[in-house]
Structure formats: C-alpha cells, structure tokens
Write a protein that binds this DNA or RNA. Structure first.
Length: 291
DNA sequence: TTCAATGTTTAGAC
DNA sequence: GGTCTAAACATTGA
C-alpha cells in the first residue's frame, strides 16, 4: 500500500514526532527485518547486536524520502557541541506492502522492532514481513549495497519536466501501466496511483508508451503531479494496513476513481469498469474513457 | 479451500 | 538487450 503519497505522509509524521530525539533502546523481535533481502537467511545474533550497538544513543537529526524509501539520519550526541550534528549512521526503511511506522502505538504480534526514544516509542509493524529496516554508515554505503540503483526521477524534482517525460516515453516499447510501476522513469507510483493517473489522463493502461501523443503526455505529466500532490494533502490512501505515524487513516482512498471499482460504473460515463492483469497486478480502467 | 492483496526482485522464455 | 510472465517473500480475509 505505501506508495509515494503514503511514504511522504509518514516522513512528515516522523519529522513532527521523532526528530531531535535520542534512541535509548532498540528491541528486535524479528531479525529478518534488519537484514536486507539478499541476506535474509544470514540473520544472526551478531547482526542484531551490531545493529543495536551502531544505533543506540544516537540522535535522529534528519528524515528523508527517496522514492518509497525512508531514511533517518543520525548523529552522535557524546559532545555538547550543538553544531555536532554530523551524520554518523542512517536507518534505511522500506515498508513494501504492509509495513507501518507508528509513534506511541500498541505493540501487536506483527510488531518487529521497537525503538525507545526519549519521549516515546517508534514501532515497526509489518504483517507480511516484506519490508526492511537497515543500518548503514551513510548514504554512500547504502548505494554501494545496491539501493536506489534503478530509480528514475522524483515526480516533484525540478528535473522531472514534460520534455524529460516525452523523451523517455518515446523510447519505451512497453505499456504505460508497467512503465509507471517500474520506477525507471519517475518513482513513487504503485498500483493504486498508476490506475488513478491513467484514468484521469484518459489513457488505457495497455497503451504502448511510444504511441502516446503530445496531448496525452501533457495530460499524464500534469496528472502525475496533481494526483500525487492531492493524495499527500489528504494523507494518502488507507485501503488495508496503511496508517499515519499517529495511527490515523489517510483520506485519499475516498477520492479513488477506478482503483477497487472493477465491475462498477465509471464516474464519468457510467460504462462498467474493466479489470485487466498487467505486469501481474490488477488494473481497473474504463474502456470508453481511456483510449 | 482457494484466491487476491499495496512492492520489488529474480529467473526463464521468446 | 528488451520485454513478458510467474514466482518468491508471509499473512489475512473474503
């Protein structure tokens, strides 16, 4: 569930709740979460101990988002120098399908990590356990370990221009739905927002990118920005497990035009919405409005 | 009991 | 090399 609007909402929630706090204790209930995917089966006691040793007593000084990743930047607090906020570690978090970061929540059987901070607890919950919470010395170490490798531009980056999108799509021989999901051109769009963006742009999810005309790409470009921005404004879409850091639900799912509406009438033309499987994921669209 | 669910990566086929 | 599909990860709920 967490796509860019949800991850951005969580990032903003973390800024309000945990920024400036020191990590007093860390309880790891599920070691798998702190091992990156390729290392899943190498989880060990040593890994857990070094994870805790590397992070404990440090202060959370920055929260960043890159694509659907959340990065907490930490600094040492041994010195009293208030300017000594040099990054001494990062925590790289990916929520995948069902990860949650909840401040001062109630632990459940799906709570895998508990960070005890000076003023409260931060819980990492994850029903399906696909997500991860990783320690790295710094961003460059994360990059060296293969993170952020095939990511395109951030949709709100000034480099993400109409010209850039046109140029990339003109070279892409696959359909628009799988292209949006791939993160290769623009990051942050998942299954929900891909369907919503295609619908509002009147583009079928099956359309091959290089066949899109100028008018269609203009519309796509505008709607990528508008829909993601509006969804952030509404705190994201809560369709199953997604919650804000304060435990509340988002409100953007109330605005969904097509996601989850297969078999129901199109809000624009009343045609029954169609469901196709594209890139292994369900896609809901209107055969009449989307060409 | 079977199927599908928000993300990402990988393997194999063409 | 490009692109497609299926499968993998683990759990829940319809």
């Amino acid at each position: 569930m967490p796509e860019l609007p949800e991850v951005e909402t969580i990032k903003r929630g973390l800024e309000k709740s945990i920024l400036g706090q020191r990590i007093l204790n860390i309880e790891i209930r599920n070691e798998k979460i702190i091992s990156s995917h390729s290392n899943i089966r190498k989880a060990s006691k040593i890994k857990t101990e070094s994870f805790i040793r590397n992070l404990i007593d440090k202060k959370i000084v920055n929260v960043f988002r890159r694509a659907k990743n959340i990065i907490l930047e930490l600094s040492d607090v041994q010195s009293n120098n208030k300017y000594d906020n040099v990054c001494s570690a990062i925590i790289l978090i990916h929520l995948k399908m069902t990860g949650q970061l909840i401040y001062n929540g109630i632990t459940t059987k799906h709570t895998h990590i508990i960070f005890t901070l000076e003023k409260g607890n931060l819980l990492y919950n994850d029903i399906r356990q696909f997500g991860y919470v990783l320690y790295y010395k710094d961003i460059s170490e994360a990059v060296a370990n293969g993170h952020f490798e095939k990511l395109g531009l951030e949709p709100f980056d000034e480099d993400f221009t109409l010209i850039y999108l046109k140029d990339k799509l003109a070279k892409t021989n696959k359909n628009i739905k799988s292209t949006l999901l791939s993160q290769a051109i623009v990051v942050g769009i998942g299954n929900i927002y891909a369907d919503e963006i295609c619908f509002v742009s009147n583009i079928s999810p099956h359309r091959i990118c290089k066949t899109l005309n100028d008018k269609e790409i203009n519309s796509l470009y505008k709607n990528i920005n508008n829909i993601l921005a509006l969804a952030i404004e509404r705190g994201g879409s809560s369709i199953s497990d997604y919650k804000l850091v304060n435990g509340e639900s988002g409100r953007y799912h109330l605005c969904h035009q097509v996601y989850g509406r297969s078999g129901l009438a199109c809000y624009k033309c009343k045609t029954i919405l169609t469901k196709s499987i594209i890139a292994g994921r369900s896609s809901v669209w209107c055969e009449n409005c989307q060409k």
